[in-house]
Every structure is written in structure tokens, then in C-alpha cells.
Design a protein around this nucleic acid. Structure first.
Lengths: 135, 135
DNA sequence: TAATTAAATGCAACACTGTTGCAATAATGA
DNA sequence: TCATTATTGCAACAGTGTTGCATTTAATTA
């Protein structure tokens, strides 16, 4: 994945590598606060711009669930500068509060008489496997 | 609807009536900026607390679409202090940028092997009827 | 490898949003 | 009408988003 930055026409800097490494370490969506904790040292403006450019280039995507601060997760699909294409839903566990990107075979579609839909996003809340086993 | 506040155990104040009137005037979700423009005079802390308590009491609900500031819309269903129950999806028109709450007969369900889902929310983007006719 | 150039970073600075404690004010029920 | 309790407004602060500009660094070319 060394050439991810090159593919996206981004310069490969130590800071960007560090931030990317944090995203690959986690396999779920994470808020800024976790990224900040993982970084030994950082400049908040650079981090802000790094997140922004990662989203623009389709490296990560933002997940805004109502009442929650934004979370970010790696894009697994062929996202690019033009658009994000996701075959997954966003699931938030009400117990552990973790937000997962869950891959699904097909996103159910819905027809609306008065609207032309070109993208769907599904957010769900409930219990993740781990929390379900415990309770 | 005069007794809406009484039902929710909220005092009926001039300011709350004003804010509620703005919500009923619009038939789509609106951001804080529109509410602020509609109010002749307001205190931002009071507005902040009004929005907060309206959400808590199930009078309005918040809609956070990725990359957008929060929008708010009246709850049409039997929402209360405990939970919001919505039989609608949130649709954002890519052209006019308006966010609509679109009532649907049934929300499609999805089964995930490792998660127990208890609530769904669907967000869609595309073109609304008006913008579709124009283009 | 060194020089060039264009991008990325860091600083300063500001605006906006979210949030609390507390005193003043207003709505409700008796 | 009065007492009680919720609501409002002020002051104040923290956090986040954002920009311009000078400095530094990565990538490119000679």
C-alpha cells in the first residue's frame, strides 16, 4: 500500500503515513479523539487538513450519526475524488458505542415516487456480537 | 396544537412558540441558520437550549448527513422522551441542497449475521421532483 | 547528487458552536 | 394573587473549523 499516496496524487509524508497507520490498525470507525491519542505529537491544523484531504481523495469517509461526533473509517471500495461508493452500512453498538462499517451483499433499494435516488446510506443501531454475548 | 407543550411537560413560552412556528412553516428539514434568520430577535444560548429540549422531548429530530451541518425537522410520529420512531427516510437533493423527510410505507430491513439491529435510518441523495423537472 | 519547484506544514489569528453556573425573569398551579 | 419552579440571559470558557502566510519538505529534473 506504499503507493496509495502516489495513486491519489498526494505526497507521502511521515505525518500522513502515521495517520494512515492508525486507520489501518483499527477495523472500525474512529473519532478524532482516538487519532489524537494515538499520535505521539501532532499539530491540530495539519491533522484537520490531513483528514480533509483523505476524505477528498477517497482514502477515508466520514460517518455522522445523529447526536454523535463524526467518526472516520478507511474506504474499502473504489472511492475517489469524485465520489464515495460504499457497499456497507454503518452500525453503532448501543452498548460499547463502537461504530462499525459492515459489508453487505446488497444494499436494499427503495423507490420514491417524487424523488430520483442515486445514493443510499444506511445507519443502524443495536448490539454488536461481542456485547450481545456478554449481556 | 396548543397543548403540545403541555403534553411534553414543557412551559409554553413566547420564544418556544416562535421556534415551533418556524418548524411548522417549513415542510422540510432546516439548519440552525434558517431558524436564526426567521427569528426577529433571539439569544443564541436560549435557542441552543430550545433545540436541545425539543429533541429530548421528541418534538423535532436531528439529521446529520455526512459533510453537512445538522438539520432539524418536526417529528411526525409518536416520538417521546425515550426514543424517536420514524417511518421516513432522509433525502437530500444534490441540486437545491434541501433535506426532506420522506414518509415511506415500510422501511426495508436487512439482516446481519453478527449484529442485532434495533433501529434503522436511511439517508439518500439524488434529485427532488422540482429540480428534476427543471433540469 | 544537487538544484528547482510545488506541495505540505506550522504559526497566528479569528469565527462559530457547544456548554455551564448563576442570577433574573416569567409561566404555572393553588 | 402568590409561591414555586422552569426558563431565560449574561458571562465565560473550551473545542472545532478555517484561512493567510512564511517556512519547510517531498518529488522532479538537470
Amino acid at each position: 500500500m506504499t503507493n496509495l499516496f502516489k495513486n491519489k496524487k498526494l505526497r507521502e509524508t511521515p505525518f500522513r503515513k502515521e495517520v494512515l497507520a492508525i486507520f489501518t490498525k483499527y477495523n472500525n470507525a474512529i473519532p478524532l479523539s482516538i487519532i489524537e491519542k494515538e499520535l505521539n505529537e501532532y499539530n491540530r491544523i495539519t491533522l484537520y487538513r490531513t483528514i480533509k484531504v483523505f476524505i477528498e481523495k477517497g482514502i477515508i469517509h466520514e460517518i455522522s450519526l445523529n447526536g454523535n461526533i463524526s467518526n472516520y473509517a478507511l474506504c474499502k471500495e473504489k472511492c475517489d475524488t469524485i465520489a464515495h461508493y460504499h457497499q456497507h452500512i454503518h452500525f453503532k453498538c448501543n452498548n460499547c458505542k463502537v461504530i462499525f462499517c459492515v459489508e453487505v451483499d446488497k444494499i436494499p433499494t427503495i423507490k420514491l415516487p417524487e424523488y430520483i435516488i442515486d445514493q443510499f446510506e444506511i445507519q443502524a443501531t443495536g448490539l454488536c456480537q461481542k456485547c450481545n454475548l456478554i449481556s
